[in-house]
Design a protein around this nucleic acid. Structure first.
Lengths: 345, 345
DNA sequence: TAATTTTACGTGCACGTACACAAAACTAAA
DNA sequence: TTTAGTTTTGTGTACGTGCACGTAAAATTA
């Protein structure tokens, strides 16, 4: 391994000069600078990150702003786990992470948590920008301090994000449509239940639906698709009655649930004893997996939320410690999960 | 952060003693040992890996034994890339990797490469045990030297492997069958072309077939499945004539190719102008992707070979540097790849 | 030409750990 | 009590890098 010392010896200068050249610090004549740079290149020397972090003895604080993992929505416990795992791996680099969580259906709690985070004066931020308007307002504080931030899971546009980590929602809808199409005859009918609570904030729900529909428009326009608005997902009776209305007199062949709540629809299908309806949903939460395993749900599209969290922290750590500029986008794979491969995830 | 110094101060001993306690080295009285251990626990002190590696100044050599990435089989270029990426990430830990490649259809070249590797006196080995008998014979040399080795991609049983990284082949066959079954009517007929060259060495090909058949036996026994032996995959004419024979007079609805050579079958289907035949294969090589994109291949099951290579090296590095014992198995996810999500991989 | 400022470079310590070596504290025999 | 041997403990240096500090040499000014 080539070290700074080696370079210094070859270049007939001291390690201090080499250090100055490497970090582009002032106090080196143009002549020696070029000379040292040449030798660095020749030996394709690279800084030893290990020694560097040790010497720097700097510590970094990463703030994490994500929804709390509630019973009704365990989705966010996955990124949390991924973040914790990554934090564990890099803690020797003196990077600490602090969580700020909020109720993903309550914009006020989002604002509170966000403000707490801003007050914490972090070196970098990993966040799920669930609420658009509130994000626009508060993120100016981060911009002002030049605090780098990465969006996770939700790809809001028009911000100075360092990077986005998550799925391309339109494409994932497209994929769901493909899966649905191989399962259905050409003259089938599909419904898309949309829970109203999701509609407002989560633009990716809409993107998924658009992607889904665009597939059939292009490839199999003979298939009818209908949206069904459902006011909330707390009251099973309401869900049932709305769906009952729509099922009556019609034969529905497929249901596409553009959110992680496909289990609610599965529950309905089971109690209503409706069989031979193909069901595709999102995310591998416990209930979804249960219905996947008993064949009520055919496919789940998984966002790999664990990986999203893990990669988010890793990205920021690389950025902070090694000054490594990330890509603007890291699209997580759209993993298709079935009864048969669910255990490997 | 708590350091060895801090512990030493609290325990009223020197850092040397703390070091001896941490590494369980001799030369510490039972009394002080317990005392120091208690303080270590109280402060839940953990060694700083960064400083540790720097101080140890030890270097490790990992030998990698995998098939060469040939034009006819680009599969193995993926693990190679993964390995190189991981090697890059950990090179500051003074870990070097050396490749020993062989022709995956020539056991002699395997033996030669393996012997070269053994002569290289490596600290750990990552290998694809393509040939069973030869592996049994040569691996004793590694066992004798207590050199840890990890199997990648091929899960040979009965060896002292530190870990296996790869897919559960039976399950992946099962998964392929599920995908096939959603696409086919109940009275369909499926063929499984098996290239003879694969048969002998690669036990996972057989496992995939077994998994595939077991699904239909359980779930849809009305569907007929037939194996078709194909002597090699060099001569397209031979392949065509054999398939022609089998297609004649019959309606084949689905083809399951249990290897990465589904593109050969796709090529046949296109030239023979056979449409409406569902085709499922393995691995995202360039040609397969091409046929996936033009809808000749419906699904590919991906082994994430890049990840396999990457994780293999990471695992060994964790084992060597941090003495972290790995799981006996890391089953890579069975990723379903379609035209719609292929770009994300 | 001397005094002063600026530039260019070298030196030494710190980061946290590992380990060789030195020193001290015991133990047992003379 | 002395002495040698053994066990236990302390000290110093190295790993590779970053940075504060010091100091010649060169450039500028008076």
């Amino acid at each position: 391994m080539t070290t700074i010392k080696d370079i210094a010896k070859k270049a007939n200068v001291s390690t201090g000069t080499v250090d100055r050249v490497i970090h582009n610090r002032p106090g080196v004549s143009e002549k020696t600078k070029i000379h040292v740079q040449k030798i660095i290149e020749e030996h394709n020397f690279q800084i030893n990150t290990i020694a560097s972090t040790l010497a720097l003895n700097k510590s970094y604080k990463i703030g994490v702003l994500i929804p709390e993992a509630r019973v009704e929505n365990e989705f966010w416990s996955e990124p949390k786990k991924g973040i914790e795992k990554a934090a564990e791996e890099i803690k020797n680099f003196r990077i600490s992470t602090s969580f700020f969580t909020f109720d993903q259906f309550d914009s006020k709690s989002y604002v509170t948590a966000f403000k707490d985070l801003i007050a914490g004066d972090f070196d970098a931020v990993l966040m799920a920008p669930v609420f658009h308007k509130e994000t626009s307002q508060l993120i100016t504080h981060l911009d002002k301090e030049n605090t780098p931030y990465v969006f996770i899971n939700i790809d809001l546009q028009g911000f100075n994000t360092l990077s986005f980590i998550g799925q391309d929602s339109f494409k994932s809808g497209h994929l769901a449509a493909k899966l649905m199409s191989v399962m259905l005859a050409d003259s089938s009918e599909i419904i898309i239940p949309v829970f109203r609570l999701n509609k407002g904030n989560y633009s990716h729900i809409n993107d998924r639906i658009t992607g889904f529909k665009s597939f059939f428009k292009e490839k199999k326009s003979s298939i009818k698709i209908k949206d069904i608005a459902i006011p909330n997902f707390k009251d099973l009776k309401v869900i049932s009655s709305i769906l009952d209305d729509h099922m009556k007199g019609r034969t529905i062949d497929g249901i596409f649930v553009p959110s992680s709540r496909s289990f609610l629809i599965a529950e309905y299908l089971e109690t209503a004893q409706l069989e031979n309806i193909r069901l595709i949903g999102y995310d591998t939460n416990e209930k979804n997996i249960q219905f996947l395993k008993n064949d009520t749900i055919d496919f789940l599209i998984c966002q790999n939320p664990y990986q999203q969290g893990f990669n988010g922290i890793k990205l920021l750590s690389d950025y902070l410690v090694m000054n490594k500029a990330p890509n603007p986008n890291y699209h997580s794979p759209m993993t298709i999960v079935t009864k048969e491969n669910v255990d490997a995830f």
